[in-house]
Design a binder for these strands. Sequence first.
RNA 1: GCCGAGGUAACAUAGCGGCUAUGUGGCGGACUGCAGAUCCGCAUACGGGAGUUCAAAUCUCCCCCUCGGCUCCA
Length: 465
Amino acid sequence: MPLKVQNTMSGQMEEFQPYQGKKVGMYVCGINTYFDSHMGHAKSAVTFDVIRRYLVRNGYDVTYVINFTDIEDHCIERTIKLGIPLEQLTEKYIGEYHKDMGRLGVKKADIYPVASHHMDEIIQAIQKLIDKGFAYESGGEVYFDVMAVADFGKLSHRKIDDMQAGARVAVDERKRSPMDFVLWKNKKEGEPFWKSPWSEGRPGWHIECSVMSMKYLGESFEVHGGGTELVFPHHENEIMQSEALSDKPFVKYWLHGGLMNIGDEKMSKSLNNFFTIKDVLKDYDPLVVRFFLLNTHYRKPIDFNQKALAEAGQALGRMQNTLDSVIAASKTATEGQDEFIDRAKEAVEKFDTAMDEDFNSRDAIASIFEFARDVNKYLESGPKKSSLEEIVQAFKVFDEILSIFTFEKDGDSHMLAPLMEIIIDIRQKARADKNFQLADEIRDRLKEMGIVLEDLAEGVKWKVL
RNA sequence: GCCGAGGUAACAUAGCGGCUAUGUGGCGGACUGCAGAUCCGCAUACGGGAGUUCAAAUCUCCCCCUCGGCUCCA
């Protein structure tokens, strides 16, 4: 089954096909480096992490680029307020970003370009746009001339005339058209600035991404991602700038993720209703958070709340529990295999089929739950070693993409197993003597240190939480 | 106003022409000294209205509601 992706540009599902062979360039808009990342950023990072992992699983040679925007109002405001150089602020939050995302199991991108390190290229690009007649200078500022491009709005599907320019902010009188956007702006008093042919100032937000993505991925590349709120104006403007510069199609597939909401509002820094990743990880296992994010299709919004996270913990625990049992059983199972080995292979196929449909991780997870139920049944029917190993392999495939399972627990030391055998033996004797008080005490005290006992018909099972 | 994404059982999510789904929670069983885990079963669905079709949650049209975008924002 071929991989299909929902392309915002066409509004349709399209078969995924790189420009050349197996090479895939992938660019995702990262964060503004002035504050700790919140759960909305986590959703984006995890979404595209999974997409990247799945592309790699399908044999694509992915070059993944995530940018950091450090030349932007909030960063500048912050650097002035704290009285530290911009560079220092940028570095601090890049470090925090990597820490947070690392804890969430997000694999590192190949390149993390920083806007302020690309000033020469940005200025050159702006000059080129002026030279080619796509931009104009006005009072030390440079604007992109929207009227100079024929296909305005092809990503967001809107027409210039239909929009209420200045609906929320007054139109700048220096612009020729209200839809024109700034490429270079004058510095304000006390702000960091760079020298340019037009004025001492700084670049606009959109041009930074055009320049950095094309620098590292070429003038045309395959995948560009981000949250839906970036479709307009940011990505629309990126397209206009990039294609004006290169005269080539910019990006083949536009992938947009749904937003993280709180109640009926999106989570955002400016609305001040955000939960930072650090705060959430104080209360929840990173694997649970990751599962929570992947249990909804990436293009849909997710409502952030404690109940949903708790539920995610329960649900993930169900699957992990099955995995634990399989691993434990495989240590003592009889050699050989049986027909369940095919069920394990089928599980991987179902998983891939779901992921092939625009990275439908939710559907993929549902298939794992079904598999887990079958596995649980199988475990009670005298499982064979090879089949159990095949099940573990299947979970390894799921985990290669989702990264939500644990295969080895910290407490798994060589001494622990024989020690537990002794304790369980003694407790079984107490139970045989109907000394339930002692039996319960042993169980309770083990639980306190994170070891759970389960009395089953076929014997006592233990596991480390 | 315009563009986009949605409205699925108690809740949260998939599905998107015929196979009634997945998890959490609830109820009832099996197992059990108890607890937990696990299994089996039950209940409660497709925003409203018209239409197309042998057949619609899935297609068409109209309406209602929610969110996002048209300032910065993953």
